[in-house]
């Protein structure tokens, strides 16, 4: 057997015939040193400590003292009305934003994929929110939601409706956040769908048209099924990202989680607890709960997807 190195592109991890000495490790180690240092301190260590801290009772991080080890924090979490409320709010947010933005993005992506003129202008318009700071744009939305002088109420009145207390009413505030959330999610999702769409071979469409299929049929029987891996991916990414909603709330309500704490989300809970109230272990527990829920949801999602996509 001869190795045609000149043609091969793939490099073996270690060639089984080479002796592995201490030197084999020294060189990579030098290159990896910055990575190892940063990742250990700011990624591995936090993962471990957040996990451990969530079990510490009466943890004082400044003095580094704690009284015990147990599930005390977790039970405190779930009996805390605020946390449960935060969970609910987060779920409502995710449950509204993800489906709506996914469907809208899909529609937009399909339309944009039709190779029309003015693609660059459309691209600029539809993707702009993606590169701009949520916190800044959120403040603009806040202004648009203004009861007296906001754009949105203006349009509602033009259309004959009554102005809404977007910023003041706890329920309408939720709607305001959701609308803004959807708007902000669209660009990234559209891009993902567009790249997914572009992987679908023209041939399928041509074959379907030859078979006499109308556009509606093509859409539902060809495009969407072929796009299902992308759709699954989009759902996962969006669920993960929307469950972490924070910047949007902060921007819209100037650091407060909505009128009457109506927009108190889990990340807000975490933030308040460890930054303002120094309840580090509670915050850790909450973070873990959030992570666990999201993780489970994505697992569930992948399981469902496997059965659906393979059809």
């Amino acid at each position: 057997m001869s190795m045609t190195l000149t043609q091969g592109k793939r490099l073996a991890k270690t060639r089984s015939d080479e002796r592995i000495t201490a030197r084999t490790f020294i060189e990579p180690l030098i290159y990896l040193l910055p990575f190892i240092v940063v990742v250990s301190v700011f990624m591995v260590y936090p993962i471990i400590t957040v996990f451990l801290n969530s079990f510490l009772e009466d943890y004082n991080y400044l003095a580094n003292t704690y009284s015990g080890f147990g599930l005390g924090n977790y039970s405190a979490l779930f009996s805390d009305k605020e946390f449960v409320g935060a969970l609910q709010n987060t779920f409502i947010y995710v449950g509204c934003v993800v489906p709506i933005s996914t469907v809208l993005s899909l529609a937009i992506a399909i339309l944009l994929n039709k190779k029309l003129r003015g693609t660059s202008i459309f691209q600029f318009a539809y993707f702009l929110p993606m590169v701009t700071a949520t916190i800044a744009v959120g403040i603009v939305w806040k202004w648009m939601y203004h009861y007296d002088y906001g754009l949105i109420n203006y349009f509602i009145q033009v259309l004959g409706g009554e102005p809404v207390h977007w910023m003041e009413d706890p329920i309408m505030a939720k709607a305001a956040l959701i609308i803004y959330g959807i708007w902000g999610k669209l660009p990234f999702t559209v891009i993902l769908f567009l790249s997914g769409l572009q992987t679908i071979d023209e041939q399928y469409y041509t074959a379907a048209k030859v078979d006499g299929a109308g556009s509606k049929k093509i859409l539902f029987r060809i495009t969407i099924p072929l796009l299902s891996p992308t759709i699954a991916l989009v759902l996962i990414i969006n669920i993960i990202n929307t469950s972490k909603v924070f910047n949007e709330v902060f921007a819209l309500f100037n650091g407060k989680p909505g009128p009457g704490y109506s927009l108190y989300t889990v990340v807000y809970y975490i933030y308040e607890n460890f930054y303002h109230e120094m309840n580090v272990s509670i915050a850790c527990a909450a973070a873990l709960v959030l992570f666990a829920i999201v993780f489970l949801m994505t697992l569930l999602q992948t399981a469902v997807q496997k059965r659906w996509v393979s059809r």
Binding site: F42, Y45, T49, K244
Partner: peptide, 13 residues
């Protein structure tokens, strides 16, 4: 792993 989770300890660090 979300950044928000890491941020807790990173802030303390």
């Amino acid at each position: 792993v979300p950044f928000e989770l890491l941020a807790i300890t990173n802030y303390v660090t």
